[in-house]
Amino acid sequence: MKNPPFIYHRPESLAEALALLAEFGDDAKILAGGQSLLPVMALRLGRPDHVVDIGRIPELLTLDAGPSGTTIGALVRHAEAERSAAIATHAPLVAAAAPHIGHRAIRTRGTLVGSVAHADPAAEMPAVCLALGATMVAASVGGTRLIDAADFHEGYLTTALEPNEILTEIRLPAWPDDAGGAVVEISRRHADYALVGLACIIEVGDGSITGAALAFFGADSTPVRVADAEAVLVGRPPAESAFAAAAEIVSARLDPPSDIHGTANYRKHIAGVLTRRGLAEAAATIGVTA
């Protein structure tokens, strides 16, 4: 189980990297942390002619979390985000996701942006971005374009990125003062990819829910939000009855896949369970006990 041959490029700047992608396009794969790409190559399920290692590009190291929002560059590793006090404060949903992502040795190398670009439907970060309404920054030799998280993931391992583009950073909006968030999931073993997971946010004002985001992963070919369930929460007190109402809608709306690790019915069911658990946990982070 050895990697197939490829031509290796290690650009020193973003411009150089983009020029390589412009030249090789579909024949090239971007290597950052490598925790998704390398298994695929080892299994010879992927055999790019060119590998563009962006690991030494200083522009991509940005990690900037503050009250006005958070910017995560393409080389920010899960381990760095996990340890960052600024992320914990200003992007608590990212912090909540971190411990679920693989094992520590994977988080040492793997990048948040890489996980989003790889687009495994059972991964945490794409759903976190969807819940937060993140903006994806895609760069190419032609310039930079911004993509809404809602438009970014198009299917299984498929995104809106063009072959000549690099996802250079993810921008997260400011975390509201009165919001609680949680990332919950159920997996076969500890730290496996989720059978179903949920990244959720609730905002609470004057004793009732003023806004909610429920982004599920592992429940479809991309992360999905369930708008009806979010809507049913708004205006109700952050309590078990509201969460249960949302859970019921979630289980009815989702159309998850069936595989050897769990049936579709099972996934629908636990999506509801996770809705109740996730919302309760999110509420607890802002001192509301359901």
């Binding site: 059978l195 069936s258 769990g262 049936t263 019915n265 099972y266």
Partner: peptide
């Protein structure tokens, strides 16, 4: 007895 089978046996969910 994976989790989905457990819930089927418990009558919590139906088989697909």
């Amino acid at each position: 007895l994976p989790p989905s089978r457990i819930l089927e046996l418990a009558g919590v969910i139906d088989p697909d």
